[in-house]
Design a protein around this nucleic acid. Structure first.
Lengths: 345, 345
DNA sequence: CTGTTAGCGCTTTCAT
DNA sequence: ATGAAAGCGCTAACAG
């Protein structure tokens, strides 16, 4: 059995008694029709015989596409065990399965990429990019200089030359407010996410707008800035409660913070949901298994990622790069009712 | 702000007033020490100024490494939601995080790869391969012709020019037998996995050997060939039970089959574990949430994958390809006790 | 220590 | 319809 010996287009040309250009034409779907069918037959036979496959690097170098998409996200351990990313990778992976495209996992350490000029296409060999949590590694300027078609998943921001595909944060925040009101809550608190996260800002906006429309204005003391992390919420829990006596419900901009909050309050003898109701956002796996089950808002991340991949591929296939890939699409979120919110009679 | 304009080594050389070879030396860690430090400083400044990054394709073409590993596995929808693969990807991803390597997701459709000659290095731009479930897309011959360093996760087979990293199936099967015996079972049945899966064969071997050593020989009727799929086990459940009256326990070579079996038996009014005990293998997520909880064997897949990645990278870094990457390492599995096995008094 | 030069395998004009 | 030849950006002899 013959060992793989890196056949080149030249080997094929020699054996088929044609020139390398003809072989090149034959193996590229776009140019294949320019070759006589008798010639095609000869070439195909030889290609098959040797199991020839064109050299990826040589093709790329000649400015063709790599048929590879880069998936970029902040580097951290355990990303493939993280439910947020599992849904995203699932959506992307399932979509690309039916295409000839592969994807390359590119974790980005903070400050690793030279801000304004890193050329992903040349340096990573990818045709396009799908980014999750982009504010963790790109500044606004970086994005403007990003000379490659790019889809952002969530963290929508205006005036960016990319396609944004994400959950409808504003409506999600609104839904949270509506549910709390429906359950009879009136004295409500709010823990926001990171300042730089547009998702958090929109969740907050949707939430407070809805409350305002129903005659409830949160006092300044009832709004705390969190950072999406469980321990931060854990730390601020006590003083937050002390500053706001009489609160019956708190909306946290993500589940981690809801859990941190509940943990600390329980320690201080304040039971959720009996003494205080708490809502989260994202529906992470733990939200379901935690006790009490966290009432939360779920984004259709699988769909979001899948649609992002689809849009990117469509753009790449059309191949008109004169105008950048740009646009946005928001998916409705879903209220997940569990046990952390009590109905006030 | 200047838009990314694909700087080349030549641009850098011109601006730094040195030759392109010097730039090349400067940007490669292996050759960097051959450049005078004053020259280095000049070059580094320019590189930084332009955010220059070497062209991936050109480097690859020049036979350098791509610093990219291909991860290959049978193509199927939902792979990133599959607990087996989540653990594997987690292990690989976490390991590569601390390296300069990326990995590329390459799902392989059955028969997609030209059997004996597909050149992964050239065609996919990868330096090495990590394969899961390789028997699904490679024949023994394919593997022999695989002209690239390769690590197989599980599905160990002898005399393959690859490094195998997997769970110790034989001991796992043995543990299952030991546990069943300890719980007082004597009339035992067995549902195997796919014929072509060496993992299944070894599980079976470990299992039956241990039983034999303790005076129990399974009658032919008490061994059914399954195919790892839930519905297959579901289908064969009834006739299997009918053929083997008096059975108190059944060992299934994976959890899916255990679940299929239990489902069907419940439908026929046979309760697990009260009327029959059933064990699985793999500890998939459902094994824990299914009712009854499935007693099973867990392989340290995260560790296995991580170690596989480590071995591959070590080999690649040493760079002596005169002898192929070859070897094996087996990790002990762990018994997970749940509710599907009853203790006989 | 640095520069010159020959390709790596392919696609793509430009001829024929 | 086909072939000859240039060159993509880089690395690695080789020569100084």
């Amino acid at each position: 059995m013959k060992t793989n010996t890196n056949f080149t287009i030249e080997d094929i040309a020699r054996e088929a008694k044609v020139s390398i250009s003809t072989v090149s034409r034959a193996i590229n779907s776009e140019t294949r029709k320019k070759v006589a069918s008798a010639t095609l037959r000869k070439i195909d036979r030889v290609v098959k015989k040797y199991g020839y496959a064109p050299n990826f690097a040589a093709r790329t170098l000649r400015a063709a596409s790599t048929k590879t998409i880069g998936v970029i996200f902040p580097a951290f351990t355990g990303i493939f065990s993280n439910t947020y990313y599992i849904k995203i990778f699932s959506g992307i992976s399932d979509f690309f399965l039916d295409t000839e495209y592969k994807f390359k996992i590119i974790p980005l350490k903070g400050g690793q990429v030279n801000p304004v000029n890193y050329d992903f296409r040349a340096a990573e060999g990818v045709d396009g990019l799908i980014a999750a949590h982009w504010p963790h590694f790109f500044s606004h300027e970086d994005v403007l200089a990003l000379n490659i078609p790019c889809v952002f998943l969530n963290d929508y921001e205006e005036n960016l030359p990319v396609y944004c595909c994400g959950g409808d944060q504003f409506t999600g925040g609104k839904e949270a407010a509506r549910y709390l009101l429906e359950q009879g809550h009136k004295k409500i608190g709010l823990i926001t996410g990171e300042e730089k996260s547009s998702d958090s800002r929109l969740r907050v906006l949707g939430f407070t707008n809805y409350l305002k429309a129903h005659g409830i204005v949160l006092p300044e003391s009832a709004v705390a800035r969190g950072n999406y992390h469980e321990d931060e919420a854990y730390k601020l829990a006590e003083s937050f409660i002390n500053k706001n006596p009489g609160l019956t419900a708190i909306f946290c901009c993500n589940d981690e913070m809801a859990i941190g909050l509940i943990r600390r309050l329980e320690e201080r003898g304040i039971n959720c949901p009996n003494q205080i109701s708490i809502m989260g956002y994202d529906n992470i796996t733990r939200a379901g298994s935690f006790s009490p089950g966290i009432t939360t808002i779920e984004e259709p991340l699988y769909q979001i990622a899948r649609e992002g991949a689809r849009v990117l591929l469509d753009y790449l296939k059309v191949g008109d790069f004169s105008k950048p890939l740009k646009g946005e699409r928001f998916f409705p979120s879903m209220l997940i009712k569990r046990d952390s919110v009590k109905t006030l009679r």
